[in-house]
Simulated assay, not measured.
Amino acid sequence: MYAVLFADAGLSAAEISSLFILWSVSSFVIDVPSGIWADAFSRRLLLTLAPGLTAAGYALWTFLPSYPFFALGFVLWGAGGAVRSGALQALVYDELTRLGSSDAYGRLIGRSRAVGTTAVMAATALASPVLHLGGYRAVGLASVAVALLGVPVGRSFPESRGDGGREEDQEEKRYGAVLRSGLAELRGAPEVRRRLFVVALVSGVDALDEFVPLLAKATGAGAATVPLLVLVVTAGVAAGGWLGGRGTTWAGPVLAVASSLLAVGAWSGRPAGLVAVAVAFGAFQWAIVAADLRLQEQISDGARATLTSVAGFGTEVVAVLTFAGYGLGSSRLAAGPLFALAAVPYAIVALILWRSRE
């Protein structure tokens, strides 16, 4: 719903897109360095710091609602996501492996995404009454409070690797060794590179979900109906997360069908078309989990966070292109056709996976 906040603050579609681009740029500038740090030292520490950065960004939006502070808030939000990127997947996969349960990774990550999406659904459902009672200030304060709850949650994660504690004169050497190890693995393993590309493309185009409120609004739905339409799409994403880790060999055909549903549903220009969009976004969420699982199975423990962050870097590059494409296209096309065009990258990934029989 933040896209609507920015629009109500007087920002154009192009200005909103520029904010999302700044978000992605700040993310990929920090992504890989933070991943190397997570492999060299502590993944849990980064998971503890990330929510605080995001909360600071929300606070700026709440108390200083203008383009410059929206921009600074996006930088902080991007930083929060970047320091979490790679560290979370690496910590979870390695701890599950230590317990002999690495096969549960896909289901666990999928369910965690679903829980997060379900929380978004609850927040979306509450958006209308909260906006009515307290306006954007009330929504912003709630966002800050919820983000800060993530600090103790991040600290609660187990980490058998410890929280660092190495001698300071070994830090630079350790950081450099992790970087060299990750680069060597990336250069020497074509299959890892292919899986990184698939993760980046599928996850990056998924950034289009930030514009779902604008798609819902473009159908002609009233202001009170838009949150409900967004809720339908969010429900589809949650369902895809709950199914994560299952039937991953069908990724190619599923993405082919989903890309068609996205194109048809978005192009229809009707509120009912968002049901097809919801199914498509659910399939995309499922495919992201499947792609992440296949990547984790291919990379080594010592560079896991580093290479997962490389995938995150690629994701943000694709996201920037997505945001830029939407912003540039918005001057000529409505939201429906723009979303329909976004089906093309998914169709390309579907073809790649189909040919490799994944």
Rank of each mutant, 00 (worst) to 15 (best):
A90C: 07
G269E: 15
S112C: 12
R332C: 02
L353V: 06
F63L: 11
A114D: 05
W77N: 12
Y175T: 15
L46M: 14
V344P: 00
G135E: 14
G312Y: 09
Y93C: 08
V151L: 04
A59V: 09
T306V: 13
P190F: 00
F41N: 01
I348M: 04
A138V: 07
L72A: 03
L243C: 14
A122N: 06
L338F: 10
A207P: 00
L133I: 12
S112Y: 02
A238E: 02
R194L: 02
R270N: 08
Q285H: 05
G165K: 14
T62W: 04
T124M: 12
A223K: 03
A142R: 02
A114Y: 03
V139P: 08
L5Q: 09
L179R: 08
L231F: 13
A251I: 15
L141V: 08
Y175E: 13
F339K: 01
W242C: 00
I348H: 00
T97R: 12
I352A: 01
R270G: 14
G302R: 06
L186F: 11
L47H: 03
G269Q: 04
A263K: 05
L133H: 14
R332V: 06
V257N: 04
D94G: 08
G204M: 15
W242K: 03
V4R: 04
L60R: 11
G182E: 05
V237Y: 02
L141G: 13
F313Y: 02
P253L: 04
R187Q: 08
M121L: 06
V233N: 04
A87M: 07
A7K: 12
F70H: 11
E358R: 15
T48W: 09
A79N: 11
A280I: 13
A347G: 09
L333F: 12
A305F: 03
A7H: 12
A324I: 15
V318Y: 00
L47N: 08
V254T: 03
A283S: 12
L186Q: 04
R304H: 04
V153G: 00
L208R: 14
L49N: 11
Q170Y: 09
A79C: 06
R44I: 10
P213R: 15
E167H: 09
A142D: 10
S268E: 12
A184V: 07
V205M: 12
R294D: 13
D94E: 11
T234D: 10
G134M: 11
G116D: 13
L261T: 07
G282N: 04
L214K: 07
F281P: 11
G314W: 00
A251F: 07
L215R: 05
A334W: 02
D39M: 09
A123R: 04
A13N: 07
L96T: 15
A13P: 02
G78E: 15
W286C: 07
G140W: 08
G329A: 13
A122C: 10
S330Q: 09
P337K: 08
G182V: 03
L22G: 03
R332Q: 10
L53Y: 06
V289I: 12
A263R: 02
A342G: 07
K217I: 05
A13C: 11
G247V: 06
V120C: 11
V226F: 07
I36E: 14
Y58H: 02
I299W: 00
V202W: 00
G52E: 14
L179F: 06
D301G: 14
T234S: 07
S26N: 00
L141Q: 09
L274I: 14
A276S: 01
E168H: 09
R332D: 14
A3G: 15
A14E: 05
E210S: 01
Y67V: 12
L11I: 01
